[in-house]
Design a binder for these strands. Structure first.
Length: 496
RNA sequence: GGUCCUGUGGCCGAGCGGCUAGGCAGAGCUCUGCAAAAGCUUCUACAGCGGUUCGAAUCCGCUCGGGACCUCCA
């Protein structure tokens, strides 16, 4: 098996993953700003890192996964004079800011559960780390990398670069270009350089979220929280930092500058960025009005949706592409994913009940045995190749073929040997549930009732009462199920 | 305008110098009361034009199309 390789945005190439501390991984992912519902585009990013988290653990790493909640400091609009997002919603909805935060944090957690995301090890919030952030601002001023101006504090990019750093290296920006493109924004007069960014903002009296600081009442800049919280829980240097592609600049660029400025060392070893979810070729975003909320998806109520899709269908759909590619959302693609997912799911339900039966003098089918073993290895190789879940799923379908053949009595377990059989059985479950994080969703289902229906079916069929037989099939179909009428037994499956 | 990514069969989507990815849809076969399920077989590809190479979907150039970022964004 190969080593895990990760595409590092910093070097722009795939690198062999070597954690700073052998056997341990520190991973930080930018969480949501909880001022509104998370949409499907957000979910794609969290999915990428959920799978990474699962996979790292599965191959034996002890992982500390930190994902923050941004509950202050993220401004609305282009300028630094914009309103705080939480504060704005609080005014609109006439709620206490913390009510807004709580409401959307709760929603976020429900959504994560719906899509079967594992909880991070630590989920810190920006407002819970005000002391750390104020200390960091003080520290940066002392180091000469930040300056106060009219109650706000700005990070001094020129000073930072003079000290031998390179602001812009992550996103490939050139300082001069950035300067030429600087827009006319309010508050620029306070800055020594238009590119300097706020690490502490003075709050206007009517601003509802503000804290006392050595520079007066104010609130921290958006980029600062991630720097402080990642350093606090993962150390001044840690392994993986993830987030959506659209956070690369300026957010992650600023994080590097703050981290390096504070500690003198490169804060992150591997930067990972997941690509955007698009709708008709355009980035899904709230401002374009083409974003779906999870609730709209499950009920199928959004105008762009032809039907409802379950969370696992969506999870599977997203996993069929590689995280660094854009993924286009469409009804046709979702429908295809639904069928594929249910087929795999039926295999997952069946594989657990397969049992090995030794048969003497049965010749081993070497070709099949080898193909199974090859597919299992290929699954790991695919995951190791920068989390190529699309390719990993292709291997799952190869394995599914054999699961089905055994289940249908078309292949005897003994023909592939006990070892390969056991491996097929255990790995299929691990791949499906533990690594890809798929699961059986609760549809209307009652096992003992189903078994009763199936025994009636069997009886009617034996008596050749085909009208009754067809009737039972219709009941199943009405519940998204289908009867599998096989030579050796009768069973049911989710309709694909 | 600057920086970068991208264009694969009916649809989605991997691959990124030689080896049929895969899923969905279509066609045929086996099984079946008829079906369904499952297995088997099978049809459609690499935007266009040049170049490099023994060999290119994969590298290079140009043209055309799509997209992202450039202080809201996952």
């Amino acid at each position: 098996m190969q080593n895990l390789k990760i595409y590092n945005s910093l070097s722009r190439q795939k690198e062999v993953f070597e954690p700073l501390i052998p056997g341990h991984v520190g991973m930080y992912v930018c969480g949501p700003t909880v001022y509104n519902f998370v949409h499907l585009g957000n979910i794609r990013t969290f999915l990428t890192f959920d799978v990474l988290y699962r996979y790292l653990q599965n191959i034996g790493y002890k992982v500390r996964y930190v994902r923050n909640i941004t509950d202050v400091g993220h401004l609305v609009g282009d300028g630094d004079e914009g309103e705080d997002k939480i504060g704005k919603m609080a005014k609109l909805e006439q709620l206490e800011p913390m009510e807004i935060v709580q409401r959307y944090t709760n929603d976020f957690h429900q959504v994560l559960e719906l899509f079967n995301f594992l909880s991070p090890s630590i989920e810190p919030s920006a407002t819970g780390h005000m002391v750390e952030q104020i200390e960091a601002v003080k520290d940066l001023i002392e180091k000469g990398l930040a300056y106060e101006s009219n109650g706000s504090v700005y990070f001094d990019i020129n000073k930072y670069n003079e000290a031998g750093n390179n602001y812009g290296k992550l996103s490939g920006r050139i300082l001069e270009d950035l300067l030429n493109e600087t827009r006319e924004l309010d508050g620029q007069a306070e800055k020594r350089n238009p590119l300097d960014f706020a690490i502490w903002k003075k709050a206007a009296p009517e601003h509802i979220m503000q804290w006392p600081s050595p520079w007066g009442m104010g609130f921290p800049g958006w980029h600062l929280e991630c720097t402080c919280m990642s350093a606090k829980y993962l150390g001044k240097q840690f392994d993986i930092h993830g987030g959506g592609m659209d956070l690369k600049f300026p957010h992650h660029e600023c994080e590097i500058a703050q981290g390096k400025g504070l500690t003198g060392v490169e804060p992150v070893k591997y930067w990972m960025h997941s690509n955007m979810l698009t709708v008709n070729g355009q980035k899904m975003s709230k401002s374009l009005g083409n974003s779906f909320l999870p609730a709209e998806l499950i009920t199928g109520t959004h105008p762009l949706l032809e039907q409802a899709y379950s969370p696992m269908t969506v999870r599977f759909f997203m996993l069929q592409s590689q995280y660094r590619s854009t993924l286009d959302f469409s009804n046709d693609a979702l429908k295809a994913a639904q069928k594929g997912y249910r087929r795999l799911l039926n295999g997952f339900r069946n594989v657990k009940n397969l049992e090995f039966e030794a048969i003497e003098n049965l010749e081993i089918d070497t070709k099949k045995k080898e193909e199974i073993e090859k597919a299992i290895l290929a699954f790991y190789d695919s995951m190791n190749d920068d989390l190529n879940t699309a390719m990993a799923i292709a291997q799952m379908f190869t394995l599914l073929k054999y699961v089905n053949m055994i289940y249908m009595n078309q292949l005897l377990p003994a023909a592939i040997g006990q070892e390969t059989f056991d491996d097929l059985k255990s790995k299929f479950v691990i791949f499906f549930a533990d690594i890809l994080g798929l699961k059986e969703e609760e549809m209307t289902k009652n096992d003992s009732m189903l078994q009763g229906m199936l025994s009636l079916y069997r009886e009617y069929k034996a008596n050749q009462q085909y009208d009754k037989v067809d009737q039972i099939r219709a009941y199943f179909k009405a519940n998204s199920m289908t009867i599998k009428d096989m030579k050796h037994k009768i069973d049911w499956a989710w309709e694909e």
